[in-house]
């Protein structure tokens, strides 16, 4: 799996991570893969819900070091 772009949302709180994610996804092509790093607990619920609604695919969601959540999304 090749990551097309990494989006750093560490330290940001609602609504900035979702706004940045949506902006970044618009620029990608179908099938591209975005990696997002964030620390806002809200994103853990907002992002899967957004993926379900928009049809983008959430490939991975894991807790990495330092309280950072890593999420990998494939564009529809």
């Amino acid at each position: 799996m090749e990551i097309t772009e990494t989006l750093d949302c560490k330290g940001l709180s609602c609504p900035m991570p979702m706004m940045k994610l949506s902006k970044a996804m618009k620029k990608l092509k179908s099938g591209d893969i975005l990696e997002m790093l964030g620390t806002d607990p809200g994103t853990k619920a907002d992002l899967p819900a957004w993926c379900e609604k928009t049809g983008n695919e959430l490939l991975e969601q894991e807790e990495i070091e330092g309280g950072v959540t890593r999420m990998v999304i494939k564009k529809k």
């Binding site: 750093d8 560490k10 330290g11 940001l12 620390t39 807790e63 070091e65 330092g66 309280g67």
Partner: peptide
């Protein structure tokens, strides 16, 4: 304005 250096302290792991 919404990018730059951020810090995270005292977080717990799984």
């Amino acid at each position: 304005w919404s990018t730059g250096k951020s810090y995270n302290f005292l977080s717990a792991g799984t």
